Computed example of a mutant assay.
Amino acid sequence: MTRIIEHFSEISANYDAVYCDLWGCLHNGQRPFAEAVRALELFRDSGGLVLLLTNSPRPKASVEIQLDGIGVARDLYHEVATSGDSARAALASGSYGKNVFHIGPERDLPFFAPDPDIPGLENINRVPLDQAEAIVCTGLFDDQTETPADYAAIFLEAKNNGLELLCANPDIVVDHGDKRIYCAGALAAAYTERGGVSHYFGKPHPPIYDLARTRLAAAAGRDIDQSRILCIGDGIMTDVLGAINENMDVLFISGGLAAEDTATRPQPDPQKLEAFLQKHSLSPTATIGHLR
């Protein structure tokens, strides 16, 4: 059974570093959560390393600029690892061809920007669907109005053409302010349901954790044992499942995506939390309503 805690400081001394999710944990897409910022500041000031581990389809630099814009100071964290960077490396390898059809908003175009750290990206071309060798999905064209059902025709043509889909963000939904919107993971799941083949590079899949370990070691100047790293996140099938698959401890933020299921006000109802976790057959190391 998961342990319900009131404050991160109750367990933080057990860890040298954290992999902290962004949406639902540190911010809501519009503003940072003051208590979460303070909790990470205290951990940082005690010598802990903070790596932001996000299923954002954008490159690290783009995520940092986004965080600047909503008021998350750069001195709060030491490194960033994104699903987008993991997917970009796979795309740059040439394993999916050079000509790709992009599903996603214009704000995600930095995904395709040449990067000296990822050789091969400069060879990737965005082309119409009928000329593509694969699909890259970073999100919906318009996540404010569309749903996966709007992509039925695109997916039918893509499947008939034998195209595989690279999903740069495995999240199904995310809360943007007070609105819940679909992410690239919802489209990848819909494509798979229609008989297509989808590939994932963010949480809970291994590539993003490999990237995180490399970047954390570089920031620390040494390898950090996984037993001394805590994952923090609100996605039961991304953050929690990914951490457990990697044999890492995880602090589940029940007041994010699972707020209603766990009756988090501001802490989760123990019985509803247990029922929710049993439903998914997962048991996080600890649970807290909101990071604080």
Rank of each mutant, 00 (worst) to 15 (best):
A92M: 13
D108F: 02
G256S: 12
D142Q: 05
E274Y: 12
D68H: 15
A34P: 14
E35T: 15
P119L: 08
L52D: 03
A149I: 10
G242R: 00
P284Y: 02
L216T: 12
V18I: 13
S93K: 05
P57V: 07
A36D: 03
H205D: 10
Q30V: 14
P207W: 09
C25W: 05
Y19I: 12
T145D: 05
L109G: 10
L51E: 04
A219K: 02
N161G: 03
D115I: 08
N160K: 11
H199Q: 09
C167G: 03
G104C: 03
C231A: 11
E164W: 07
L76Y: 10
P110G: 09
L121S: 09
G24F: 13
C20A: 13
H280N: 07
P128D: 05
G104L: 05
H290C: 13
K159W: 03
G177E: 01
I124R: 00
L91N: 08
H290Y: 14
H205R: 07
R194G: 02
I135E: 03
F33R: 06
A73L: 07
Q267H: 15
T287M: 03
G162T: 00
Q226W: 12
P204F: 09
E79R: 13
A217P: 13
T2K: 06
L230T: 01
D21L: 10
I229E: 01
V37L: 15
A152P: 04
H7W: 01
I229R: 01
S83T: 01
D178R: 14
R180Q: 14
E164A: 11
P119N: 11
D130P: 04
L273P: 02
R180S: 07
D130C: 12
D68M: 05
L42P: 02
E64A: 15
D178E: 15
S56C: 12
A39D: 01
D21A: 07
G202D: 05
E260I: 11
F155V: 08
I103D: 00
N161L: 06
P270H: 12
D68F: 10
F276K: 07
E64C: 13
I118N: 11
E79Q: 13
T82H: 07
E193Q: 14
A152C: 03
L42S: 07
F252S: 09
G71R: 04
D223G: 03
D261G: 11
K159S: 02
R265F: 08
P114G: 12
A190R: 08
E41Q: 11
A89K: 14
C231W: 04
P105F: 02
G202Q: 02
I288K: 01
M248A: 01
V197F: 05
T238R: 01
